[in-house]
Amino acid sequence: MRHFLYICLFISITINSQESIDATLIDSSNLNADQIIDIDNFETLYFIKDHTIYKNHSNKKSINYSNYQLGEITTANVFNPLKINLFYKDFNTVVILDNRLAEIFKIDFNTIQPYKNITQVSTGFDNTLWIFNIDFQQLELYDYKTNTTRFSAVPVQSDVLDLESDYNYCWLLTKNYLYQYNYFGSMISKIENTGFTEISKSNGHLILKKDNILYFKHKKKEEIQPVNLPKLLINQFLLTNETLYIYDLEKLHKYQLKIK
């Protein structure tokens, strides 16, 4: 009887480990970009080319912003399209843009007190940014209008790989763990990282990348499931609602996920 239970348990674990998320190809289009930033619900495409960020919609004229004095744009976040943030790591500076890509605020962390040495930036609520301060190895919720830190997390003990956020949560991916915080700064989950290097989020769901394979994490589940995809180069990926975008340096592929 005991052997029978072990066999049933093994079969159950095997079946669960093989569960995956199906993805159906909807469209593929040519794209020449250095980095894709976001695609919103109206299919407005934000991307970077030659140190310039572009906002492109098929029914409207493309607009762009560049600041060559600050050099390369390390990351950009357009979760709040009225307060788009561009991070220039080489100059330890963040520029905030409005929805017309006009500059409305600039934060030079080299000149403010106390000095902050930043390696990751993402959007917070109101006038805040989630930033990672490498000197203290800690995540901070920074109010750039008042130059105050609303929250500082307990320092992490491993290298930070990625940072994502929305108005309610922030996800910090380190070499050892994936942390999730709420907007009060409380850590609400901590999952061991088994080799993931990048993340993308939408509506609380996550897409994670390990090697050249993508995985899906439901916002209400701890389980991380592989996404069924054909073999292709995954240079970049984005999640918008249940739509997965993959950029292979030549084409932008659009997939519909079947999220249960």
Rank of each mutant, 00 (worst) to 15 (best):
F4S: 05
Y6M: 04
I15F: 14
E19P: 08
S20A: 13
S20Q: 09
I21P: 15
A23F: 14
A23L: 12
I26A: 02
D34A: 00
D38I: 01
I39E: 11
H51D: 14
T52H: 04
Y54K: 00
N56A: 10
N59P: 00
K61P: 12
K61M: 07
S62E: 12
I63F: 12
G71E: 00
E72S: 11
E72Q: 10
A76I: 01
F79E: 04
I84Y: 07
L86T: 00
D90M: 01
N92D: 06
L101G: 01
A102Q: 04
I107D: 06
I107K: 00
D108S: 07
T111C: 03
T111H: 05
G124A: 00
D126W: 04
N127T: 04
E140N: 02
K145Q: 15
A153D: 10
V154Y: 06
D159I: 05
E164Y: 01
N168T: 00
N168P: 04
W171Y: 08
L172Y: 01
K175M: 05
Y179S: 11
Y179V: 09
Y181R: 07
N182M: 08
G185L: 09
K190N: 15
E192Q: 14
N193G: 06
T194W: 06
E198P: 11
I199W: 02
S202K: 09
S202A: 15
G204L: 15
H205W: 11
D211E: 15
Y215V: 12
K221D: 07
K221A: 15
E223C: 11
P226G: 06
P230E: 05
N235R: 13
L238R: 07
L238M: 13
L238C: 11
L244D: 12
Y245G: 09
Y247K: 15
D248S: 04
L249H: 12
L252I: 15
Y255A: 11
L257T: 14
I259R: 04
